[in-house]
Design a protein around this nucleic acid. Structure first.
Lengths: 228, 228
DNA sequence: AAGTCAATTAATATCGATATTTTGGGAGAG
DNA sequence: CTCTCCCAAAATATCGATATTAATTGACTT
């Protein structure tokens, strides 16, 4: 059973499939923070065997989205205000560093890609929220991808995902309050195109701090739903 | 078979066993960078089944010590001068940040633990190199553990391990050249006990930069043995 | 009636076997 | 002689079943 027929053009492994699906479930909060992740349940939910599920959970452990307790299984990583603040702080520092390096290596290819990503993000924002989330991450990662620092990029990507989870918690989706993030994104883009590393970093950090304050308020308002 | 008898006081899972053993093999270079990690070989090497091996390798992927290529198995992460430099840079930034935060939260419990760790490290240095490696990491992590920033600590721990690998490559063990690392460690400790965050960070970064230059020279001398 | 211990239940961790995919090598065509 | 294609061998990924360990319930003692 579970055979992939000709109509089924899947080139990816079951483990990766599980990994992506589980990550999505955790990021959106469908698997809420702290929840026990029983192999059998996930196995039937994802229509696959126990091995891919376990391996996917092991991979998610490295992304700090899942906690593994020896002999006692897996659970979705808990959330807390302290954790949120640490993520914010690390993002400001690490993405700031990556952005400076990216600007230092600026070339037209990078710039043109940025413009394109920004355009896609603006477009997606008007249609559906989930497409916007994807485009938003693509834009932010495009900002950093010119640094030539793969490990740093990986950390930034991880931290971005961890932060998304708080956004979903606060707004139940991609609701960004009524702040003008458009203007903030434009400011970051402009500074990059001017090849002004200092201004770019300032704009980026400002963007995160504002979002952070907004989310922080949201968390206070609905405190009690946040564990620990 | 492979039953754990009463004499066998193991409380840990086979997966963790594999994880620790494989990590050690990769850090020391017994499994050299870029080497294909075949499940069957490791399975027989570690006297266990395929599942624990695969799970351990998945966990090591998160530590960036193993690369996973979908449908094509695992391999030990490659090394390169660029990678080494990135690790050094990230360590200086991240550990610097963590150390500042640790000093800011300084209390006597932390200080006393530092003194103790430093003492253990000095003692171990005179007996055997492998004990020194353990004590050395314990001292460095003790410096950072008072920051109250668990994710940052985790990153620092990861980066520390990644760096160890280059040290083993350069010296074939814990050989540190004849620099006076003792004095450097003392300087870091003293600055912490003075609760002087700026001096502590400076001493720490200086310590890493010196070690970095030393290792960098070693790598140049034996270049060709380093792939890529 | 409260606490402890044992037996039952449930879940994890692990094994052994199989299907699927990749790799390597050799035969045949150009 | 080189290239391509196909087949055999090896390795990965996955499944299904089992042994081990943790959680739970309920009886028994005090």
């Amino acid at each position: 059973m579970n055979v992939m027929k000709a109509t089924d053009g899947k080139e990816t492994s079951a483990t990766r499939e599980c990994y992506l699906r589980l990550r999505d479930l955790i990021l959106t909060g469908e698997l809420p923070p702290g929840q026990k992740l029983k192999i059998e349940e996930l196995r039937s939910l994802l229509n696959t065997g126990a091995s891919p599920v376990r391996e996917a959970l092991s991979l998610l452990t490295s992304d700090m989205l899942v906690e593994r307790i020896d002999q006692r299984g897996f659970r979705a990583a808990p959330v807390s205000k302290a954790n949120f603040k640490e993520i914010l702080m690390l993002r400001c520092t690490l993405e700031g560093m990556a952005l400076r390096a990216s600007v230092a290596n600026a070339d037209t290819t990078w710039e043109e890609n940025l413009v394109l990503r920004h355009h896609h993000m603006s477009r997606a924002g008007k249609t559906n929220p989930v497409a916007f989330e994807v485009a938003h991450k693509a834009f932010h990662m495009a900002l950093l991808c010119n640094a030539g620092l793969p490990m740093l990029e990986r950390y930034c990507s991880q931290l971005y995902d961890l932060n998304i989870r708080y956004r979903y918690r606060a707004a139940g989706g991609a609701g960004y309050g009524e702040r003008s993030i458009q203007a903030e994104h434009q400011a970051i883009l402009d500074a990059c195109l001017d090849r002004d590393a200092v201004a770019a970093e300032a704009a980026l950090v400002d963007h995160y701090r504002r979002t952070g304050q907004y989310l922080s308020r949201q968390m206070d308002d609905r405190s009690g739903s946040v564990r620990q």
